[in-house]
């Protein structure tokens, strides 16, 4: 019996039709990251707008279904939010949006987009990443 819990409808939907995937023209800042153990490579570009808001966010890269779905869902979640709120997005919040409880290996796939998105915001703000965010993946 196949346990498809990891590949539920919302994950597959975001994997097959990722939102906000592609290049971002006139980005304020970009960051990239990878997971050498599985080969996931993700980049995030952000465009900061008026009032410290995240006007637009796009991701790109080669990654597994969990990582792509996570990046897609995250991009929808943080678009239009304040940079500070987007940067504060917790792993628990992202996992609840994904609706899965991955094992430690796949957890890295799910959290890589969060770390890279945060890195882009830190870079844009000229700040050093917190220890907690550094340890996400």
């Amino acid at each position: 019996m196949v346990d498809e819990s990891m590949y539920r409808e919302n994950i597959l939907d975001h994997y097959k039709r990722p939102r906000n995937r592609g290049k971002l023209a006139h980005a304020s800042c970009c960051a990239e990251g990878d997971n050498p153990f599985c080969g996931d490579e993700i980049s995030f570009c952000i465009k900061a707008g008026k009032g410290g808001k995240l006007e637009e966010v796009k991701f790109d890269g080669h990654a597994c279904a969990i990582c792509v779905a996570s990046a897609s869902i995250l991009s929808e979640e943080v678009s239009g939010k304040k940079l500070s709120d987007a940067r504060a997005c917790s792993k628990e919040k992202l996992l609840s949006l994904l609706g899965i409880d991955p094992d430690p290996t796949r957890l890295k796939c799910a959290l890589l987009p969060l770390k890279v998105m945060k890195l882009a915001i830190y870079k844009h703000l000229g700040k050093k990443m917190s220890k907690e965010d550094e340890d996400l993946v």
Binding site: V2, M6, Y7, C38, G39, D40, H62, A63, C64, A65, I66, R106, C109
Partner: peptide, 8 residues
């Protein structure tokens, strides 16, 4: 992706 196939 290979990891997804591995998961299945």
């Amino acid at each position: 992706h290979a990891h997804d196939v591995g998961q299945v």
